[in-house]
Computed example of a mutant assay.
Amino acid sequence: MDIKKIRELIDLMEEKDLVNLEYGHDDNYVNLTRNVAVQTIAAPAAVAAAPVAAASAPAAAKPSGKVETSPMVGVFYSAPSPNDPPFVKVGQKVQAGDQLGIIEAMKIMNPLEATQSGIIEEILVNNADVVQFGQPVIRYKA
């Protein structure tokens, strides 16, 4: 595939505001992914509305624990396979380095490991959800 075709695909991604684009023909294949973090900055109205919503919520509803975030864009899996139990459950104690889940990116299964020890307070995504870079996945008790 020549660079001209790749530039056309990049232009198409920008024009249609696509995050991911896969293109293949014969023996040529390309998978393009844009940095999603840059796109989230472009929504100042949502950012400005967040403090107002938080201020009106009751104090008990505010989550206070630290979170594990996704290190990449991909699909989150809570278990090694559909018939296996999940890696972690709410209320479970984990140590730094324990596996919390799997994030599949470009057909590669990447382990999501705990960066800290603690007790799981909340699992913030469902099995097979698409997660973005930096998105909170697991919340620990404070």
Rank of each mutant, 00 (worst) to 15 (best):
P58H: 02
S56K: 14
I120Y: 13
E113K: 15
R139F: 05
A79W: 01
V88C: 15
N35I: 06
A46I: 07
D84E: 14
F133L: 08
A42D: 12
I119H: 10
N28M: 08
P71I: 01
E121L: 05
M13K: 12
A59N: 06
Y140C: 00
R7N: 15
Y23L: 02
D2M: 01
G91Q: 12
V47P: 00
P82M: 13
I103R: 01
V52L: 14
A128L: 12
I10N: 04
D129G: 07
V38G: 03
D27P: 03
K5I: 03
N35Y: 06
R7A: 09
A79T: 00
D17M: 07
I138D: 04
A61S: 14
P111V: 00
K66V: 00
E15A: 11
Q92V: 07
E121R: 12
V94M: 09
I123Y: 01
A43S: 14
E113N: 15
V52E: 15
G134I: 02
G134K: 07
V88W: 14
I108F: 10
D17L: 09
E122P: 03
V75Q: 14
P51E: 05
S70K: 08
P85C: 06
Q99C: 04
A114L: 02
A128C: 04
A128S: 15
E14A: 06
E121G: 08
K66R: 08
V67P: 06
I120D: 09
I108A: 10
P71L: 03
A142W: 02
D84Y: 04
P44M: 06
M13W: 02
A50E: 13
A57R: 14
V125H: 04
H25S: 14
P80K: 09
G91L: 04
M106W: 00
S117F: 01
P80V: 02
P85M: 13
S70E: 02
M13I: 06
N127G: 02
T69V: 13
E14H: 11
L9M: 07
T115P: 03
D2Q: 13
P71K: 09
G74P: 10
L100E: 04
K141T: 08
A60K: 09
K93N: 10
K89V: 15
M106C: 01
A54R: 14
L124G: 00
A60L: 11
A128Q: 15
V36Y: 07
S56I: 10
G74I: 02
E15W: 05
A53I: 08
A45Y: 08
A53F: 04
E22L: 01
A59F: 10
Q135H: 07
Y23Q: 04
I108P: 00
P86N: 12
A46E: 15
V73Q: 11
P136K: 08
A48L: 15
S70H: 08
V94P: 08
I120K: 11
S64A: 13
P82N: 15
D11G: 08
Q116N: 11
S117V: 03
A53S: 09
M13D: 03
A61I: 09
V88P: 09
A53C: 04
S64M: 12
V88M: 12
A55F: 13
Q99D: 01
P82V: 02
A128P: 04
A49D: 11
A142R: 10
S56P: 00
V36N: 05
N126K: 14
T69Q: 09
